[in-house]
Design a protein around this nucleic acid. Structure first.
Lengths: 290, 290
DNA sequence: ACAAAATTGTGAAAAATTTATCATCCGCAT
DNA sequence: ATGCGGATGATAAATTTTTCACAATTTTGT
């Protein structure tokens, strides 16, 4: 049966490389909510992992079991042995790394940030921001600073697919005054600004504001001075055990916004995506599979 | 099905008095090694409790289930909820927004991704990757593709502060072959590649590999083909309710790496940061306060 | 670009598990 | 004692689940 002191999850993990694509997809699904999913009927497991029924049967045989019921029996044994100790033991279920490891300390901090951020966000404000960004009649300018320009670009890249009339402005570059020439009342500026807050960004915001543009601000818990001019301020908590701040929570918010905007503009987005796919296929930039 | 916050074990315990002799005998057996025994076949459970098969069927119906499989499903759900641990509990982070709101659905997915990713990562491999990236004798090339170049740039930006000899290569640009000219054995390539995997990235990895460079790969659960050449592969789960994938988990990993590398090189980093601060002060790019 | 090998999925057969039916048993009151 | 009612268990029917054989598809090597 199993080697002593090695869970079935470990063994699956170990043999991940020997598995084929569909099998790996299945394996990850099993590990995904382990061990519950493996204890249900084979068909349910297959469906959950989006693979066919025989793939499951084949994989468990590859793992050395006579059949699926045999595999389940082993899982139950493991569960039985485990139940003697506390089930929620961190190392066993939550992660492979010891709790002192950077990975865990960092992750814990980030999850804490997320929790805090979500607790303070006003969904109506968020929706308002999304509505502004989704409105095809408004030109959207995405603005980032020294650190945040990566986030800005990420948002920009996706918005570009979803809708027309999006530009990316880098406040640290000296070309941004040119962009403002084209800005008119009703345009939207999505501004990323976290500490240390940048003078350029503030100036840009002021000018945009003076021209009657709407401002959506992504900032940290100490709030960029831009927030005085912002129509919507989305505040993220960004503290982590490091000399820098974390951008992860802000990215989560940005991605949520992308998802929301995409849903609102889905009819258009669909067409634009298909077009994009077509272009990619022609340029052979991407591999079709694997 | 079940009352919130009440395990099935609790409910069985509670109704112990309503049960007949054989049923009680069975119930105690279930509770005996809970929940493993309840997840096996009905016949095995009956045998283990020394009762007949129909007794089991009758008891689960008495407990309010439609049949034995229904009972098992509930057990599995409970097990799944328990294994996910306190992080995934919605109440612990869901804030002001209603649970159907994009923000909450998205956040839930991302937290799930994080949990999954951390469960699969081998801390030793992670450490190995960090050691490679931290080694000042090796030149580090950070490589990103169409979507991931923002992540690559983010990592690059921070590494630049932490250590010398870092370059950022964009695999989608046609300048990358030039960078390879300077690459020598022992150099490190940190490559970001998520689906759809890019041919350029793969080519670049192949050439770097041929030149004897070390490869650290950030990829998704379906694993870029680059992983065959990688010394360390860091796999993230990136599924979210959207037409696109999420980069948040990958960013978390990248930030963790930054944090780890920074700690290892702290003496140097400190000096470099101070220098950087000095330059910023001179250029008045940032605001001192507020 | 082609052919061979491998992977994956579909549908039917086989095996198992679960449910239903009914006879038996036990405790209990008359 | 004996007959009654509920509880229990053996067996058969029904359903579900698993396994098997084969076809379609995809990947890999030349």
């Amino acid at each position: 049966m199993a080697d002593a002191n090695q869970t079935i999850a470990d063994r699956i993990q170990e043999r991940l490389d020997d598995l084929t694509r569909a099998e790996r997809q299945l394996a990850l699904s099993i590990l995904g909510n382990y061990p519950a999913s493996g204890l249900g009927p084979l068909a349910a497991l297959a469906k959950g992992a989006n693979v066919s029924v025989p793939t499951v049967a084949r994989m468990v045989q590859k793992l050395g079991y006579k059949g699926y019921p045999d595999f389940q029996a082993d899982l139950r044994d493991e569960l039985g042995a485990m139940a003697k100790g506390p089930i929620a033991k961190h190392e066993t279920w939550a992660g492979a790394a010891p709790s002192e490891h950077v990975l865990n300390r960092f992750t814990e901090a980030v999850i804490d940030n997320i929790r805090n951020t979500m607790a303070h966000i006003d969904p109506d404000e968020f929706d308002e921001a999304c509505a502004l960004v989704a409105d095809p009649d408004r030109h959207v300018h995405v603005v980032g600073g020294r650190i945040t320009h990566t986030l800005a670009e990420y948002l920009f890249m996706h918005l570009q697919v979803i809708r027309p009339n999006v530009t990316h402005v880098q406040s640290t570059s000296n070309t941004w005054p040119h962009y403002l020439l084209n800005a008119k009342a009703g345009d939207v500026f999505v501004i990323f600004d976290v500490r240390r807050y940048e003078n350029n960004t503030l100036k840009l915001a002021e000018l945009a504001f003076a021209r009657g543009a709407k401002i959506v601000l992504f900032t940290d818990q100490w709030r960029s001075p831009v927030h005085r001019m912002a129509n919507v301020t989305l505040t993220s908590q960004i503290i982590v055990p490091s000399a820098w701040d974390s951008a992860t929570t802000i990215m989560l918010l940005a991605e949520s916004m992308i998802s929301a905007v995409q849903t609102q503009n889905w009819e258009d987005t669909k067409d634009r995506m298909q077009e994009l796919e077509g272009i990619f296929d022609k340029t052979r930039l991407f591999r079709k599979f694997t």
